[in-house]
């Protein structure tokens, strides 16, 4: 139609003008969806904590929203601008939110560092306690074993010291006649150390009971020898009681000349026969009972 330039130039001009004017005159409204973008933008801007974290993105989004809000006849262009604006608002929010998470992470990692440190300290304390108690356990076990061994050794040592013989019916300690004056049941001064060892031993092993047997040589009458042997056994018992050994544990018997250990025909033999034998019972638990 534009090609017919010849006659009706006025008409054409008019027509063109009408076309142009009509383009401008159509009542135009803000494109659909622009309001949604605006609402989202305003919401984001009002969240100060987020808004401060993405100022550039938010400014960008605001520009896009303003452009999208312009009424346009070209609906395709308007739709395009709305989509872009809407996405830019979403992008701004996502960026701001990511940065907020990053900021929070700082605090979180400080907290967990503190907590971890605390946990480590606790663990170390606990480990130390555990180690201490384990050590104590080991120590006490070792001490127990040691003690048992020590007890055995101590017993052995004391047995050795007492000059005791181990026999079926117990330990036998022979106290020679040197402890007594001839014909007397009185202990001599020399008796002390030997009998003290015996007393200590009995105090150390309170389960053990003792039979104190007096023996004589064949010199003198048998009855007097019985009496003498009994008295000597009794003096040993009395001495031990004085040393703190309970009398209940101490039995005595005077055996006279009936159980010689050597011949009575020599002085040496007779000397060996004049003796007090202390028979210490064997008990299952030789250890001190505390």
């Amino acid at each position: 139609m534009n090609i017919q330039i010849g006659s009706a130039s006025k008409g054409i001009l008019l027509a063109t003008g009408v076309l142009l004017i009509s383009a401008c005159a159509t009542p135009l409204m803000a494109p659909e969806g622009a309001d949604t973008a605006r609402t989202k933008l305003v919401a984001l801007q009002s969240e100060a904590q987020l808004a401060n974290l993405a100022p550039v993105e938010i400014r960008d989004a605001a520009t896009a929203v303003a452009a999208a809000e312009e009424p346009r006849k070209d609906t395709a262009y308007a739709r395009h601008l709305v989509l872009v604006a809407d996405h830019k608002v979403d992008i701004a929010r996502a960026r701001a939110q990511s940065r907020l998470y990053q900021d929070q992470r700082q605090a979180l990692s400080e907290q967990s560092e503190r907590a971890r440190l605390e946990a480590r300290t606790m663990e170390a304390d606990r480990a130390r306690l555990d180690a201490r108690s384990a050590r104590a356990d080991a120590e006490s076990a070792r001490m127990g074993a040691d003690a048992a061994r020590q007890d055995m050794l101590a017993l052995q040592r004391q047995i050795d010291e007492l000059n005791a013989r181990e026999t079926d019916h117990g330990l036998v300690v022979t106290l020679g006649d040197l402890l007594f004056a001839t014909g007397s049941a009185e202990l001599t001064g020399g008796a002390g150390p030997n009998l003290n060892k015996l007393a200590n031993f009995l105090q150390e092993y309170p389960d053990r009971t003792v039979l104190i047997e007096g023996h004589t040589d064949s010199v003198g009458s048998e009855s007097s020898n019985f009496l003498l042997s009994q008295r000597r056994a009794d003096s040993v018992k009395a001495y031990l009681v004085r040393q703190g050994v309970s009398a209940d544990r101490l039995a005595t018997s005077g055996l006279g000349q009936g159980s010689p250990v050597a011949g009575n025909d020599t002085a040496t033999g007779r000397q060996q026969n004049r003796r007090v034998e202390v028979v210490i019972s064997n008990v299952a638990s030789s250890a001190r009972s505390n």
């Binding site: 992008i91 996502a94 960026r95 939110q97 990511s98 998470y101 990053q102 992470r105």
Partner: peptide, 9 residues
């Protein structure tokens, strides 16, 4: 941006 946000979260 959303992926970064989700990962950060």
């Amino acid at each position: 941006a959303q992926a970064e946000e989700i990962k950060a979260k």
